[in-house]
Structure formats: structure tokens, C-alpha cells
Simulated assay, not measured.
Amino acid sequence: MDMDTRLLRCFTAVAQEGDLARAADRLFLSVPVLTRQLRRLETQLGAELFTRSRAGMALTDAGAALAATAPAVLDAWAAALCSTRGA
């Protein structure tokens, strides 16, 4: 499966903020666009990543597992881009 790092960045922002509106502001996206990105990622992974409620977004077990590794993946990708561009 190919992974779109944009989807992973969206997921990470929501996981860190715990709130769609704050994550959307942080990413300069609208809430509906961010919601579509999260649904797309959940569809690709075949797992629900968040429990949604009026109180905010809570990670499911699958979401917590992804949240534990996603920042390292994004950091590794940023390092790969930097070293590639510097070559």
C-alpha cells in the first residue's frame, strides 16, 4: 500500500490536538477537508482511528498504535527529502 504523507500529517495533527477545528487551523485546512482526509486514511488502513464525540476526538487502539509510530515515519521522510535534495 502506498502512503500519502499528507494523510499521515493530518492524522498526527488531530491525534495531537484532540480536536478537528484546532487541527484544521494548524494545517490551514477546513474541517470538512480534514474530515475527508481522515476518512480516506481510515479506509486505506481498514481501521477506525478515532472515536468521535462532542468532547473531541479520542484515539482508538488502532489510532494509538499509529500515533506511536507516525511521527517517526514523518521525521524519517523529512530527513530523506533533505538528504536527497542536498546530494
Results as ranks from 00 to 15, higher is better:
residue 1 M to V: 08
residue 2 D to R: 10
residue 2 D to W: 12
residue 2 D to Q: 11
residue 3 M to T: 07
residue 3 M to L: 12
residue 4 D to A: 01
residue 4 D to Y: 00
residue 5 T to R: 08
residue 6 R to W: 01
residue 6 R to E: 10
residue 6 R to Q: 04
residue 6 R to G: 09
residue 7 L to H: 06
residue 7 L to C: 04
residue 8 L to M: 06
residue 9 R to K: 11
residue 9 R to G: 00
residue 9 R to T: 09
residue 9 R to L: 01
residue 10 C to F: 03
residue 11 F to L: 05
residue 11 F to Y: 05
residue 11 F to D: 08
residue 12 T to C: 07
residue 12 T to S: 11
residue 13 A to G: 02
residue 13 A to F: 05
residue 13 A to T: 00
residue 13 A to C: 04
residue 14 V to Y: 07
residue 14 V to C: 03
residue 14 V to N: 04
residue 14 V to A: 10
residue 15 A to W: 11
residue 15 A to K: 04
residue 16 Q to W: 02
residue 18 G to M: 07
residue 18 G to H: 09
residue 18 G to I: 09
residue 18 G to Q: 03
residue 19 D to M: 07
residue 19 D to G: 07
residue 20 L to Q: 11
residue 20 L to Y: 12
residue 20 L to F: 12
residue 20 L to K: 10
residue 21 A to D: 10
residue 21 A to C: 03
residue 21 A to E: 15
residue 22 R to N: 03
residue 23 A to D: 09
residue 23 A to S: 08
residue 24 A to W: 13
residue 24 A to N: 01
residue 24 A to M: 03
residue 25 D to E: 15
residue 25 D to F: 03
residue 25 D to L: 08
residue 26 R to L: 14
residue 26 R to F: 01
residue 28 F to D: 14
residue 28 F to W: 11
residue 29 L to G: 03
residue 30 S to D: 13
residue 31 V to F: 09
residue 31 V to G: 02
residue 31 V to I: 15
residue 32 P to V: 05
residue 32 P to T: 02
residue 33 V to L: 13
residue 33 V to K: 06
residue 34 L to S: 06
residue 36 R to A: 12
residue 39 R to V: 05
residue 39 R to L: 14
residue 39 R to I: 02
residue 41 L to T: 00
residue 42 E to W: 07
residue 42 E to M: 07
residue 42 E to P: 10
residue 42 E to R: 10
residue 43 T to W: 06
residue 43 T to A: 15
residue 44 Q to D: 14
residue 44 Q to M: 15
residue 45 L to Q: 09
residue 47 A to G: 06
residue 48 E to A: 15
residue 49 L to Y: 03
residue 50 F to S: 03
residue 52 R to E: 12
residue 52 R to M: 08
residue 52 R to I: 08
residue 53 S to H: 06
residue 53 S to T: 04
residue 54 R to Y: 14
residue 54 R to L: 15
residue 56 G to W: 07
residue 58 A to R: 15
residue 59 L to R: 09
residue 59 L to C: 11
residue 60 T to D: 10
residue 60 T to K: 03
residue 61 D to E: 15
residue 62 A to Q: 08
residue 62 A to E: 08
residue 62 A to N: 10
residue 62 A to S: 13
residue 63 G to R: 02
residue 63 G to Y: 04
residue 63 G to K: 01
residue 64 A to L: 11
residue 64 A to C: 05
residue 65 A to Q: 09
residue 67 A to D: 13
residue 67 A to F: 09
residue 68 A to M: 03
residue 68 A to D: 10
residue 68 A to R: 06
residue 69 T to A: 08
residue 70 A to N: 00
residue 71 P to A: 02
residue 72 A to F: 14
residue 72 A to E: 12
residue 72 A to W: 06
residue 73 V to S: 00
residue 74 L to W: 01
residue 75 D to F: 01
residue 77 W to K: 00
residue 77 W to C: 00
residue 78 A to N: 10
residue 78 A to G: 04
residue 79 A to I: 00
residue 80 A to E: 05
residue 80 A to H: 12
residue 80 A to K: 02
residue 80 A to Y: 04
residue 81 L to V: 10
residue 81 L to K: 03
residue 81 L to E: 14
residue 83 S to K: 11
residue 83 S to Q: 13
residue 83 S to F: 13
residue 83 S to R: 14
residue 84 T to Y: 14
residue 85 R to L: 15
residue 86 G to E: 15
residue 87 A to R: 14
residue 87 A to Y: 14
residue 87 A to F: 14
